[in-house]
């Protein structure tokens, strides 16, 4: 790899916009994601978050501006909507290898990390919404991507799982050194690890650290003061996991029948 390629961001949008069905879905978007960086897109429904991500990934060609990806970029993508037709028999194991070959240890480790190692041989149609979301997440991680793109990765996942997944995202970043582009419709919860938040509303409304964005005037205009105040910056202690058989594993490795009040964060 040449030095210029190394210095190039993973993806780079310059003044990018998409015109479709007689309207602009997004316009004038500037966005870069560097290796090791977590960038979160927030914005109301229809503000063009998914569209922006799709332009960045080369799924849509921009009508205006440019979209560039680093040559040879390896992407792990969790799309917002994905339904698998019942007529297609597909086990979780096969889903994992959908877009390319995968080493068995990588595959198993990824499923373990998202908490569904026991579902390896299950048909995907039998999974609950949250389990399926985790399987998609595991698939994206197990590819060892340079860029991990998550379009609302916590949908269908319960609150405790949501916190665990956000924690996992940070862990993955630290471990793989990959860039992460995250879409969250949940303006109340943008995690502490996010390096930059971009607030979209058809155009780029504002961007900066989570704190800076929450104090931004335009952001407050868009979401209202209450929403802005409610935006939680996540610091939490996730110290126990629920095992598939209903028992609880604690951070020190011990296993008990139930979780206790003195345990850390739990679905509330």
């Amino acid at each position: 790899m040449t030095n210029t390629q190394k210095r190039m961001p993973l993806v780079e949008l310059k003044g990018a916009g998409l015109y479709q069905d007689q309207r602009w879905l997004v316009r004038s978007i500037d966005l870069t994601v560097e290796a090791g960086e977590i960038v979160t897109l927030i914005g109301p429904n229809g503000s063009g978050k998914s569209t922006t991500v799709k332009i960045a990934l080369g799924i849509h060609d921009p009508t205006e501006g440019t979209a560039r990806q680093r040559p040879g970029l390896k992407v792990g993508y969790v799309p917002q909507k994905l339904s698998i037709d019942w007529t297609l028999p597909l086990m979780v194991e096969r889903l994992m290898k959908l877009t390319g070959p995968m080493k068995k240890p990588d595959l198993e480790k990824a499923l373990e990390r998202v908490g569904i190692p026991h579902l390896l041989k299950n048909p995907v149609q039998n999974l609950s919404g949250g389990e399926f979301q985790r399987a998609l997440m595991a698939r994206a991680i197990a590819r060892n991507p340079d860029l991990l793109v998550l379009d609302e990765p916590v949908q269908g996942v319960d609150f405790a799982g949501e916190i665990a997944l956000y924690e996992l995202i940070t862990e993955i970043r630290d471990e793989l050194g990959c860039g992460i582009l995250l879409i969250s419709h949940d303006i109340h919860m943008v995690m502490a690890a996010t390096d930059r938040v971009l607030c979209l509303n058809g155009h780029l409304c504002c961007q900066g650290t989570p704190k800076a964005v929450s104090e931004n005037d335009e952001y407050r205009k868009l979401f209202g003061n209450r929403a802005a105040d409610a935006m939680a910056v996540y610091r939490h202690h996730h110290d126990h996991t629920h095992l598939p058989d209903g028992r609880v594993q604690h951070a020190d490795g011990s296993v008990t029948e139930h979780c206790h009040h003195e345990d850390g964060h739990h679905a509330e």
């Binding site: 799709k54 970029l73 799309p79 994905l82 959908l98 877009t99």
Partner: peptide, 19 residues
Amino acid sequence: WHPLLAATVNVDLARAEGL
């Protein structure tokens, strides 16, 4: 076979991941 199966499951996913 493999790229076609990926495109059958989800075109965007296949495209995003380099197929």
